[in-house]
Design a protein around this nucleic acid. Structure first.
Length: 952
RNA sequence: GCAGGGGUUCCCGAGCGGUCAAAGGGGCCGGACUUAAGCUCCGGUGCUAAGUGCUUCGCAGGUUCGAAUCCUGCCCCCUGCACCA
């Protein structure tokens, strides 16, 4: 075997490129398949996580090309963002330079892997021919009333010098740099995503996303149905609006709580004895970050504000408190407190001695006066309402009736609240899409006319470490412009867009990537995006942000008439984690850097074990794809990645498994090469090999269609090879058969290991490039195929059980074992088998009538045989507790063998040499039980397809 | 606390009512080849046994003629959300 992976792989990569093999065009005569991976941020070179992502996508793209689909498989770069800006500062250059250098690097890595991208559709979001259309889309959003500029308290990261969206704040820390986020009030640009809250939520039910992603999105949108209730403040014009999901507990309200930041607090207690307490509480809460308020606040605290609110349904006056557990940003920042049926309110009421009133009972007829030792938060019939017409109502009925009463008096209404907020779009950074707006002293904020787009980022900016703030703001020729409306001097907006904006529609741009007059052509998008991207592959980390923004965008462009579909993604696959070993201390439950392998725990001093954890820089347990490709070739790395685990499952990196996959590939190469140098030598095994080919082809297609790539690869790279090996061992070796087998096999190798496949396709004289080849429909397995396969299974099982028995026999044999005598099933047992199968096909009830039927048969007449006949019949039909009857367990092929009266004796005798060799004996002799000596009394074991074997 | 996903034989990982002592891979053991190691090939890898019987799929119960698979409860792990009214 001489296979130089580096040479072969790069040669075929060039051949594919030269032949423009992967350039997809609209073709209505073929079903389309849009295969897409979440495009990368170009941070330098490709890492193993990328390799996994793209190897999955490429395998599926190549598979669907083989299946005759018109495949769109593009690649681009999500190249705006802070790392490039920071790198530019470090080296005193421009982010544009950094970005393109990195793109060139990662693209070279991807090309070396042999991914079958249509590189003509390449895009980088930081290139003006992409972000131009970001701006065009922004104008469209603006026209549709979805853009809004307003003052807002924003999450500010001092280190990154920018604002963050809520989704970009994790545990009150910046998702990028980890610094604690502070709150600031600023004028900001928003996209009114909440306009689409309901559709975004309701459509989740109809999307083929994994359950966890759906759950996360539902959670994030957080729709809750309830009521808005107005509580007028006594002796005042003020009204406290409160949102509740439990209007059925309205009569249990014994106080009202405002968040300490609520504007009404000051109004209510201003100049009173209560004011100082409130200020103290407000300041205390203000000092705490939201994270602390949520996570560290164990104690529910509040202060009375000196005033009372009026329950609109019963006119009752209840005290108003400010409470530290009320969140200003959710609902109205005010809560109607029902201590009897909300545990938080219960705790608060107990602490401040406020009445706890029961207004629900658990079950009809329960005592309405029963005391509560804790809040009852479930649903149940209303009691103690104090107003006619409510007691006894339960659940939704109760809610509806209360809401109707509120609406009738104008003091409230049914409403819906969302956790989802509008999308805070603006960032005070340079390396992003400039927001195309101009500030004019006379006209206010005026959009840049479409004809004047793009607003380009200046390239004549030099970045340096000591800069602070946004370089755009101090770039005069960028900032100074004229007002499109009045023509007088104006200033450009210097905020740029969140980079999630860029990735919210790139999948549509890919459909028409070189369009230079609009973001994309509708016809192209409607063709490729019909039913959404057919397979979208990426990490779970984008479950809420990217996937939600992209869904929002697609709905907006749909409503603007730019495309037909409303949901961008059909099947979504979230690839699992890629793990690698790292030192681990089980006592401290902590992982450490790989430098500490073999050392003691730096915390407790115990010796460290190892554990498989997510590959990452911080632990240093990464593996460089480039190094592995240099050593083993791209095909080996791809095979390892795809065979290691199914796409969604986590997988562990293993050097020894990688090497094993490399060896497997070489075994395949050896098999291919030897298969190509055969002579004409037909044998009965030829039909078997070709039947196996057909069976494997069907199994492989089934697995691959379901993105069960691991199972697919097991068939294509393991089963196929072991079938070939078996064929050769059994004495097969026919040129023409081998060629047919290889013609079927080689395409199956292509999705995972395309270079080797292309190489052998060419060696075999396959037509054209395998990369653009389409496979024919499969013919289903015939009865003959089933029989041929079953006969070989029969031999394999004979050998397998023979081996087991030989081991036992050795313990009993006095002398060396030299021969095997095999007694096959007597004819009458086969007759019974056929009869039971015939009855079974008619739906015969063996439990009810099996014995009677047997008694009517001729074999039963022989009294001496009666015991064995009964046993055989039972084994065939009803079976025992542990094993079902054979008529239920035989394969279709095995049944065919029996029906067609297979001559087991001659099958064995024809293959006696092979069997003897496999069993380690010098001779094998076979005859039907009863037609020769009953050697060692083994005749009684003889059963159809399960002969009795004796070793002597 | 809520939601989603999991716990399978030394390890990874399939199976999801009978064909299951449970695919496949890794590791390990034995044999062949080789001067030898490696590679490659063949076989073995719960205990027992001339084809039998026993124990096993997180734990405990249940349904069934029959459960790794279905149901109930519990324990543990991962992921996301979280004083959300």
């Amino acid at each position: 075997m001489a296979y130089d992976a580096q040479e072969v792989e790069t040669r075929w990569q060039k051949a594919w490129a030269d032949a423009k093999a992967f350039e997809g065009e609209i073709d209505h005569s073929k079903p389309k398949f849009y295969c897409l991976e979440m495009f990368p941020y170009p941070s330098g070179s490709m890492h193993m996580g990328h390799v996994r992502n793209y190897s999955i996508g490429d395998a599926m793209a190549r598979f669907h090309r083989l299946m005759g689909r018109n495949v769109l498989y593009p690649m681009g770069y999500d190249s705006f963002g802070m790392p490039a800006e920071n790198a530019a500062k470090k080296e005193g250059g421009h982010p544009h330079t950094v970005t393109h250098r990195n793109i060139a690097s990662i693209r070279a890595d991807q090309e070396r892997m042999g991914y079958s991208y249509d590189w003509r559709r390449f895009l980088a979001t930081s290139d003006v021919d992409y972000y131009h259309w970001n701006q065009e889309m922004f104008l469209m959003l603006n026209e549709r009333g979805l853009v809004e500029r307003r003052m807002a308290p924003v999450n500010w990261c001092v280190d990154c010098d920018t604002v963050l969206a809520n989704e970009q704040v994790k545990n009150n820390r910046c998702w990028r740099c980890g610094l604690e986020v502070v709150q600031r009030d600023m004028a900001q640009w928003f996209l009114r995503m909440t306009e689409y809250s309901d559709e975004l939520l309701d459509e989740i039910d109809n999307i083929a996303f994994p359950e966890n992603v759906k759950a996360m999105q539902r959670n994030w949108i957080g729709r809750s149905h309830g009521a808005h209730i107005d509580f007028p403040v006594a002796d005042s014009d003020a009204v406290i609006g409160a949102f509740t999901t439990r209007p059925d507990t309205i009569f249990g309200v014994t106080f009202v709580t405002l968040s300490p930041e609520h504007p009404l607090c000051e109004e209510l207690c201003d100049g009173t004895e209560w004011e100082s307490d409130w200020r103290e509480l407000r300041d205390e809460c203000g000092r705490m970050s939201e994270f602390e308020r949520i996570n560290l606040l164990k104690e529910k605290k509040g202060v009375f504000l000196g005033r009372h609110a009026i329950n609109p349904l019963n006119g009752e006056e209840v005290p108003i408190y400010a409470g530290n557990f009320v969140v200003a940003s959710y609902g109205t920042g005010a809560v109607m407190a029902v201590p009897g049926h909300d545990q938080r309110d219960f705790d608060f009421a107990e602490r401040y001695g406020i009445e706890i009133r029961r207004v629900l009972v658990e079950n009809d007829g329960d005592d309405p006066a029963a005391a509560l030792s804790a809040a009852f938060e479930g649903y149940g019939p209303m009691v103690n309402s104090g107003v006619e017409g409510f007691d006894g109502l339960d659940g939704q009925d109760a809610k509806d009736t209360v809401i109707a009463a509120l609406e009738a008096t104008g003091s409230g209404h049914g409403t819906v609240e969302y956790r989802l907020k509008d999308w805070l779009l603006s960032r005070q950074r340079f390396w992003g899409t400039p927001i195309p707006m101009i500030h004019c002293e006379d006209c206010g904020i005026v959009p840049v006319p479409s004809s004047e787009l793009p607003v380009e980022l200046p390239l004549d900016v030099t970045f340096s470490e000591d800069q602070s703030g946004n370089p755009l703001a101090s770039h005069d020729s960028f900032v100074n412009t004229s007002c499109p409306s009045c023509g007088r001097a104006g200033r450009r907006e210097t905020d740029t867009m969140d980079t999630f904006y860029d990735s919210s529609w790139y999948f549509m741009r890919f459909c028409d990537a070189s369009n230079n007059s609009s973001p994309f052509d509708r016809e192209a998008v409607d063709y490729w995006m019909e039913g959404g991207v057919d397979l979208y592959i990426g990490g779970i980390e984008h479950a809420v942000m990217h996937l939600l923004y992209a869904r929002f965008f697609t709905k907006v462009t749909r409503d603007a008439g730019m495309n037909e579909v409303g949901e961008p993604f059909g099947t979504l696959v979230c690839q699992g984690m890629l793990n690698a070993p790292a030192p681990f201390c089980s006592d401290c439950n902590a992982e450490f850097h790989v430098d500490l392998f073999g050392a003691d725990c730096p915390t407790c001093g115990e010796s460290l074990s190892t554990r498989s954890v997510k590959m990452g820089k911080s632990l240093g347990n990464t593996v460089s794809p480039g190094e592995m490709v240099d050593r083993y070739g791209a095909d080996t790395v791809r095979l390892f990645i795809l065979f290691g685990a199914n796409p969604e499952a986590g997988m562990d990196w293993s050097d020894s498994a990688l090497e094993a996959n490399h060896r497997q590939l070489h075994s395949i190469i050896d098999a291919m090469e030897s298969a190509m140098s055969l002579d004409d030598s037909p044998s009965p095994l030829d039909d078997w090999l070709l039947a196996r080919l057909r069976a494997n082809q069907a199994a492989w297609r089934h697995s691959m269609f379901n993105v069960s790539i691991r199972e697919g690869v097991m068939t294509s790279h393991y089963e196929m090879l072991s079938d070939w090996t078996w064929y050769v061992r059994r004495g097969g070796g026919d040129q023409d058969t081998a060629k047919q087998f290889l013609l079927g096999w080689i395409p199956m190798l292509a999705p995972a290991t395309p270079h080797i496949a292309e190489h052998f396709w060419h060696s075999l004289g396959g037509e054209g490039l395998l990369a653009t080849h389409c496979l024919d429909e499969l013919t289903s397995l015939s009865d003959d195929d089933a029989k041929i396969l079953a006969r070989e299974v029969y031999l394999k099982e004979l050998i397998s059980s023979g081996r087991g028995l030989r081991e036992l026999a050795e313990r009993h044999a006095e002398e060396e074992i030299t021969r095997a005598v095999i007694q096959t099933s007597p004819a009458w047992k086969e007759e019974l088998a056929r009869e039971s199968m015939r009855l079974d096909a008619e739906g015969f009830d063996f439990k009810a009538g099996g014995l009677n039927h047997l008694k009517s048969m001729d074999v039963f007449a022989n009294e001496q045989m009666r015991g064995e006949v009964m046993q055989t019949w039972m084994a065939l039909t009803t079976g025992s507790k542990k094993k079902r009857g054979r008529i239920h367990t035989w394969s279709h092929g095995e049944k065919q063998l029996i029906i067609s009266a297979i001559d087991e004796t001659s099958v064995i005798n024809m293959n006696s040499g092979f069997i003897a060799q496999a069993l380690g004996v010098s001779s094998v002799e076979a005859y039907p039980a009863g037609e020769g000596e009953d050697v060692a009394g083994k005749a009684r074991f003889a059963f159809p397809l399960e002969p009795g074997i004796a070793f002597l």
